[in-house]
Amino acid sequence: MKSNFFGQTILWLFALIVIVPLGWTLLNAFKVNADLLTPVPKLFFSPTLENMAYVLGRDSVFAALINSLIVCLSAVAIGLALGLPGAYAIARHPNRITKEIQFFVLSLRFLPPVAVAIPLMVIWLNLGIYDTRIGMIIAYSLITISITMWLGIPSFVSVPREVEEAARIDGYGPYAVFFWVALPVAGKSLLGALAFSFILVWNEFLLALMLTTADAKTLPIIASEMSQMGMNVPWGVLNAAVVLLSLPPLMLLGLLSGFLNRAFAQKTR
């Protein structure tokens, strides 16, 4: 009983290491600089919406939001259209070739991002798609296709073969089986895989930093630039930007935790 109490205390301490900095950032987003820059951290203050209004009111933020949404959603859609069929084919035809393909897809993640970003920048300059949304979508597709394939394979493997065979006896062709049986049955896990790929590109920084300068900047770039405005770092504004930028991934928290639970529940069976 005693060791249990001790363990519980440590567990809560760790939870606090996660919660306190995040909660603090949330509070700071609603503080004026005088409340923020105090030697003794201030827990009670009169909240202001100034920081949020400032961030949301900036044209650069709005433009970057549009860029981020278009680029990320397009890349995720491309990942879905090309990655899921590929994942299904690998899941249903396990042999030497598909095993090699599976490893190739994974090994794309081994590539150091700089090694892709530097040459892509030069190539995009030559092609005239540097600092455009198209250029960013193409670059991000490499990420979304591979991650969707990689996470989609186990989801399709877990679709019972009997279900597919029953459909085939009913006269479904192989393509119809994919669209009308495998996709809906694996649907929930696939949604988790897509959420993962969205978060990866939404949070992506290095490629965006190197492939854009003005027109196609995404939100993480704008957020990082806010620390360079003027001599004094506007911490309140920065905290507000951090909170707003983190919201979309956090909204997918439930979906992802469900994805993890399912992934490990399958292993037990």
Binding site: F14, L36, P39, A223, N239, S257, L260
Partner: peptide
């Protein structure tokens, strides 16, 4: 706890960096 511990990895790296940069601030950090 599983939900709470999943939060940090979902944050954009840029955001995690700013959260801690301010927490580590020599004069005002928590």
């Amino acid at each position: 706890f599983s939900l709470v511990f999943l939060v940090p990895v979902l944050l954009p790296r840029v955001c995690a960096a700013f959260v801690w940069k301010f927490a580590f601030h020599p004069l005002y950090g928590i």
